[in-house]
Design a protein around this nucleic acid. Structure first.
Lengths: 339, 339
DNA sequence: TTGTACGCGTTATCAC
DNA sequence: GTGATAACGCGTACAA
């Protein structure tokens, strides 16, 4: 590969001059400039980034540590990458999907720190993993903070046990809007919630909305993340007499909504006529369901963009703004055919 | 960050000795070794990878260029990353989702080459993009080959117009197995195909299976990738008299199958009793559909693993084996409730 | 406006 | 066994 020295020889000028032409700083004679540019084109010169990094003591790599990547997260990651690329950074991705082994996570963070990246991005866990929020994520943050490594967490899906700089989604607000939509636009009277109860973010929104409506919360028993059990829960709904049966169900996530929906179909309950249904996340499966699932969409592209912006400012050494770096983004209700 | 020099000072030995201890090559006195190890632990020494890359003229980065990332591809990418990580490489990812602009693709490849990565991985387009296979992908391969950059294409979803080293899926075989399963295990008599006809890979498998069965192909008119039109096609099926109506439909991909399924539901056609249905890819939406969709699964983890193996051997400078680097992997039929 | 020379941290060659 | 030391390619202070 061509080096600056070879380039200087080819163009018959000094390295310093080449440098000025490439950086576009300072004045260079027009003829000299043309000579240099011709040499660059001829030799196909590319700066050696390792040498540059060594000299400037700056890494041009931002490391992403991903604990789960469903489609909304991939979209967020793509947006993040695009913005960081425009700022001159290369994005590396390390996958750590089996989050059960806490020690391995620590090892991976150590390895990432060993790469001396300019910053680190953590992309939160999959759907509903309290263990991750309470133990895994906080443990990983400690060495980052200790090393003063600029970092940002993308959508931790809940409240981590340790305060951190993150781009968050206002899930409570999303659920609240969905409930109010069902009550006001669709005239539903008995709006239930189906999902884990140890994640307060969505439940708070649900309860807030019911308070606004002057109604009592209606929590369907949630059997856990087992798909078959969730489908069975949908079937059970048919056993309730139509008069006391919920006429709308807001769920914790799209997969949960779709499993529940399958149970409703099994028993011939008509959706949305008898029971309306709302998911959360707007995964591809939601739009492809029958009927297409109304769901609360997270602003994936904005998550990535905001995360990139925060990270770049932290890398630049800016002081945190009042209230800290974290930002909370709004969701959007995607109305389809289950409501 | 601690350097070798600081380490040498701390341990009271020369840099060369430190190096021997860290690399474990040559003999070092036991006492000296302990001294060095203590210093490493105390200063938290991490080798500067930029300096190492500069000296060894080897990059430790493998660049991935992704044109689309649905869940099966993310799984493949995760497997690829894990294997490359074990081999000491860092995986960078560049997203290029808007593949319409061919010039931008070329620019991104130029930029990636500018990073001087050890190798490059191309992760193929989304579902059914003939333009990508005929023009975009071949155009991107040219500079890679010209620069003698080790590369591998992960699952190009069809046959690119230009021969390339790739991990491929035997889609034809997958479709063939699905058809034979429907005929032999499920006793279906009129098995139709629903999907684009300009992609021969799946159609060939379909036709081969029907030949084996001594039957005539039955191609449903395909309206293109518009979801609503696909759903309408499902509705149209109801208009056919039950005696001539297909009793099974094999489709080109899961999203297409699910849109078609919605149309069947709209008209009250029972699945699988009246019409069986098979998808392709095993996306999350397939398992979450009602009824859960039988589909042909691609071996995502194996795709990633195989891709990593090929790339590592190309990076190591091995000569291509007889028949070239490319490998074709088998699919697996996931039998669920639509058959 | 242009040229020279040094140092970044690592690796590896060469003497001792 | 161990210690100096040169070189990788780039960026820039300093000199001309």
């Amino acid at each position: 590969m061509a080096t600056l020295k070879a380039l200087a020889k080819e163009a018959g000028v000094s390295i310093r001059t080449i440098n000025r032409v490439l950086k576009g700083q300072g004045y260079v004679g027009g003829e000299t400039r043309r000579l240099v540019e011709a040499a660059v084109a001829k030799l196909g010169y590319r700066p050696n980034l390792a040498a540059r990094s060594l000299k400037t003591a700056k890494s041009h790599i931002v490391a992403v540590l991903a604990f789960a990547l469903d489609e909304p997260r991939v979209a967020a990651l793509a947006a993040l990458e695009q913005h960081l690329r425009e700022a001159g950074y290369l994005v590396s991705v390390t996958f750590h999907f089996e989050s059960k082994d806490d020690a391995q996570g620590a090892r991976i963070v150590r390895e990432l720190l060993g790469q001396n990246p300019a910053g680190i991005v953590l992309v939160g866990s999959g759907q509903h993993d309290p263990h991750h929020l309470r133990h895994v994520l906080p443990a990983l943050l400690v060495p980052l903070v200790a090393a003063r490594m600029p970092y940002v967490v993308l959508d931790p899906r809940g409240e981590p046990a340790r305060a951190c700089d993150a781009v968050k989604i206002d899930r409570g607000q999303g659920v609240r809007e969905a409930v109010l939509f069902l009550a006001r636009e669709r005239g539903r009277k008995r709006i239930a919630f189906f999902g884990p109860t140890d994640d307060r973010t969505r439940l708070d929104g649900y309860e807030a909305a019911l308070r606004e409506l002057g109604r009592k919360p209606l929590l369907l028993a949630f059997p856990g993340l087992d798909v078959k059990a969730q489908r069975e829960a949908g079937r059970q709904l048919a056993l309730l007499p139509a008069r006391t049966r919920p006429d709308a169900v807001v769920t914790h996530a799209d997969p949960i909504a779709l499993s529940f929906l399958a149970g409703l179909h099994d028993r011939g309950i008509r959706v949305p006529e008898e029971v309306a249904l709302v998911g959360f996340d707007d995964r591809p499966a939601a739009a492809l369901a029958w009927p297409p699932l109304t769901t609360v969409a997270q602003p994936s592209a904005e998550i990535g963009k905001t995360g990139a912006a925060i990270l770049l400012r932290k890398i630049a050494g800016e002081r945190p703004p009042r209230g800290g770096w974290s930002q909370i983004l709004r969701t959007r209700l995607m109305v389809r055919e289950t409501t």
